[in-house]
Design a protein around this nucleic acid. Structure first.
Lengths: 110, 110
DNA sequence: AAAATTAATCGTAATATTGCGATATAATTA
DNA sequence: TAATTATATCGCAATATTACGATTAATTTT
């Protein structure tokens, strides 16, 4: 018993879930927005912007990296994070495909 | 200590996270796709389509309902679930705003 | 080389999610 | 009214997530 029966679902559904999961915490949404607006790329600056400890932010960054949405570039002692353009677009397509699959129809059940 | 420091983040970021969270499990993605394609609206039919128990499916349906993405209509003993058009569009906009906020630029750090 | 800086990782606690069987609830049929 | 059918909810177990302080690792500065 317990968590995760993910293998039983399609690869596509799991992909959507994976990308959605990356966005499923406000801290990660905030981090992505910082990177998008280039307000800060350096890990330390991101930490300063968020109401979370360094270790927690580092963990969120790791999750975004594992999901593929961002990548990190070591610059001396510091690390510069950026949106991973390729995977970002893939995620965008996967999720927007789901959302645009629904078209309001006349003959609906409810 | 522990989970959730959500209040510290903006309402908008929390909204995105809320909708993303709803999509963050392949079972829920699969349920939404069933509803979109109108292959099944009745709870029991959804249960038959998924490799999960009735109680687990019921729980996923509840989460989608709490997030606002679907609504349930009681039809006698059965319950017909449907996409909630209004909230679906809101969610679509919130998430696609985030994705389209990123434009690939020349002068990037990495 | 020692000290300082930056970020990742480890260990741990608190909490949330996932999943199921059993039970409860409500409507329908016999 | 009793039996049946369809869903929701409860209680529990397994696992995952969130968060933090402490430690480690790597680089830079002194």
């Amino acid at each position: 018993m317990g968590a995760t029966k993910a293998e039983e679902f399609s690869v596509k559904d799991n992909r959507v879930a994976k990308y959605a999961r990356a966005l499923a915490h406000p801290a990660r949404v905030a981090i992505l927005k910082l990177l998008i607006n280039k307000q800060s790329c350096i890990c330390g600056d991101i930490v300063d912007e968020l109401p979370l400890s360094q270790s927690t932010v580092s963990q969120h960054l790791k999750e975004l990296k594992v999901a593929g949405l961002i990548k990190g570039d070591i610059e001396g002692v510091k690390v510069c994070y950026c949106i991973d353009e390729t995977e970002w677009n893939i995620a965008k397509n996967y999720i927007s495909d789901l959302f645009s699959a629904y078209k309001a129809v006349a003959g609906k059940c409810c």
